[in-house]
């Protein structure tokens, strides 16, 4: 057991030192305004995730649990995980925020159409899986009446 705790202590110290080196790099190479901007983005990412994305996932899962027939819930939850993460990933491309009018080779696809294609494929997969489940279980599914915080996991 002493070996295990030694490994963990060594890892902990190593991680701490690596982190301190990173903090030194961060603080020593830029001026105050740049550091302030970096701090805002560091904190902002956590705030946006914990306060917005996580709550939106909870809310959408709760809505799905109430509105969807039971045969559709599992495929819909899986579809939600896929589409949610792909959509977040696609925001910079969909908005074309980095596009430059002197460079036609950057962001040179129709991203709206591409994203829509993924949505159509995932929704079709969810529908097919739901219909297959309905056929095998022979039930049509009743709305869920649970009122707990979580509803369906997303």
């Amino acid at each position: 057991m002493a070996g295990v705790s030694l490994t963990r202590s060594a890892l902990g110290v190593l991680g701490f030192l690596v982190g301190v080196y990173g903090a030194y790099l961060l603080l020593s190479r830029q001026d105050f305004d740049q550091l302030l901007s970096a701090a805002i983005w560091l904190a902002g990412g956590v705030v946006v995730h914990d306060g917005l994305i996580a709550l939106a996932a909870l809310g959408l899962a709760a809505i799905g649990a109430r509105l969807l027939p039971s045969v559709a819930r599992t495929p819909a939850a899986a579809g939600f995980v896929v589409l949610g993460s792909i959509t977040i990933l696609a925001i910079p491309m969909l908005g074309r925020f980095g596009a430059k009018d002197d460079n036609a080779t950057l962001l040179d696809r129709n991203y709206g159409l591409g994203w829509l294609g993924i949505v159509v494929l995932v929704v079709a997969a969810v529908l097919v899986a739901s219909l297959l489940r309905a056929r095998t279980s022979g039930e049509t599914g009743a709305p869920d009446t649970r009122t707990d915080l979580e509803g369906d996991p997303s």
Partner: peptide, 30 residues
């Protein structure tokens, strides 16, 4: 996507925060 809606310099900041993040990850694993 070459979208830079911030005023810090990308390369040194991405590099420095990488060390911070990997350090915190190693502590987390420990």
């Amino acid at each position: 996507a070459q979208w830079y809606p911030w005023s810090f310099s990308f390369r040194p900041t991405h590099y420095a925060v990488a060390w911070v993040t990997i350090g915190a990850l190693v502590v987390h694993i420990a």
